[in-house]
Design a protein around this nucleic acid. Structure first.
Lengths: 265, 265
DNA sequence: CGCCCACTTGAACGTGTTCAAACGTCGTGG
DNA sequence: CCACGACGTTTGAACACGTTCAAGTGGGCG
């Protein structure tokens, strides 16, 4: 409860406009993301372009899906930032991943009925809900595509493992360094960032909940990283000042992301 | 390096006897495991029974596959215990999962070329290496089976997330309680344990490397759990004295394992 | 202007680490 | 049969990293 709660009561402006909707650029964004996972044939792309879904706009800190639910759709994150999290009995929160536009953070719900964690927005977001059936039809039609999605979930598992190592065996300084390396690399891979500055709309409390540290210690450790000339992070904007140094500090090796496209910087 | 190292130089008694081998009971064990993930039709079972592989016996603390390798086979763990791990630059180790007979801990290698972590035995083990091609043929032949395997990897990811929460947000006592609840539940689900006592061939150092704590603190925390009458753990043998208490201490809810069969106890 | 929220800073505290020594058991070799 | 070494475990004591509590700063927005 001391944490800034994801507020499930915020179900406000849910501007849905039909069931066969889509959003401009959605398919390109998804195809670009899948392209970082593996290669797509032209017919695969064709098939993907037939995907339709229900568009939904969400407020910051609104749940896309909540723990315990049994969704019949997956959520394509078209715009905005999101994260996976769990809340413990004592009220403390662990964030397990961050998500950027182009991600489908709950592909797993295709095969695992019950959500064992929640998925919430961090910013205003646009999500396209695609029926499970539509996804499974796509897989049946384009066999290469399910392999890509499977590979995507396996890469996600690899990222979880990497976070486990950070949480279990790295100390705060390296843990944070690494926590910044990862999304920068991912955003580069889908072309969401060009230079050394990127939008990363997180509060220090959220960083703490992802890194398993208190917000106070996040503040202090960020100061260290700043004083060492590695980065600045204010108002949800991250500026990388010394990529090499940051990589060294976090022992970051992008290999675990298994990206097909060239990695960051 | 202060850790009991997985010794890759121990490649000793590698009794391979051909390429089309199998091992008695292997298919039943695999089918039983898959049965905890989802339901299999009779034709699915037929198809699975055609799987063949190269049998390999391994010493304790021998790598099944090592980080950086690009395997062309998956490893079915027929007998013995194994774990996934990574070693950091400073020499510290993080164990990311434990594996019991019936598991195929590196299904991911079907779709991710390069191993981003190592997989090593904890005890003498028997492994059956199955060619990637044989697995992919099986998937093509029995479409329901790939769904099951995919679901299996998704459940594995769910377990990683649960460990992340433990590493990031739980303190030692609950973290260990939970660490014991999990394998007991899993072993019950595949019928490897009946009563309250089970073989869990881990040293305190290995438990520490899984729980992100020092072996010294593992020793102290085990003493607490023992003094509280929850369990005893000596010589690789775990005795559950108070399952309810252990579950409470670890806030353990088996839901994240998404087992189809009835859960432990 | 004033409030709210995120961030910062200081100080005390606590959980868990590190270092070090000692114990028990088991397997090996004299 | 006993001595010895290896290894896992236990225990103590000092220490460190990170937490918690508390107060204060600063910016954004009504």
């Amino acid at each position: 409860m001391p944490k800034p709660p994801h507020n499930p009561n915020l179900h406000l402006v849910e501007s849905e406009n039909g069931n066969g909707d889509t959003v401009p650029g959605m398919h390109d964004r998804l195809i670009r993301k899948l392209g970082t996972i593996g290669s797509l044939s032209e017919s695969d792309r064709e098939a993907i372009r037939t995907l339709k879904g229900r568009v939904r706009r969400l407020q910051p800190y609104e749940d896309i899906v909540s723990e315990g639910e049994r969704p019949s759709v997956v959520a394509f994150l078209h715009a905005g930032f999101a994260c996976r999290y769990k809340i413990l009995q004592g009220g403390s929160r662990q964030i397990m991943s961050f998500h950027i536009p182009g991600d489908i953070p709950d592909v797993q719900s295709l095969f695992i009925e019950r959500m064992d964690h929640s998925l919430g927005t961090l910013t205003e977001s646009t999500v396209v809900h695609i029926e499970h059936k539509a996804m499974l039809d796509l897989f049946a039609q384009a066999p290469n595509v399910w392999r890509l999605f499977w590979r995507g979930t396996l890469i996600e598992a690899s990222v979880f493992r990497e976070w486990m190592v950070g949480l279990g065996r790295r100390e705060a300084y390296g843990r944070l360094a690494r926590l910044f390396c990862e999304p920068v690399t991912q955003m580069h891979s889908v072309g969401l960032v060009e230079g050394k500055i990127c939008e990363l709309p997180l509060t220090q409390a959220e960083i703490g909940d992802a890194a398993g540290m208190s917000n106070v210690h996040v503040s202090r450790t960020l100061k260290e990283l700043r004083d060492d000339g590695l980065l600045t992070f204010t108002g949800g904007s991250l500026a990388i000042l010394d990529w090499e140094g940051l990589v060294r500090a976090g022992e970051f090796d992008a290999g675990y992301l298994h990206l097909k496209t060239a990695s960051a910087q």
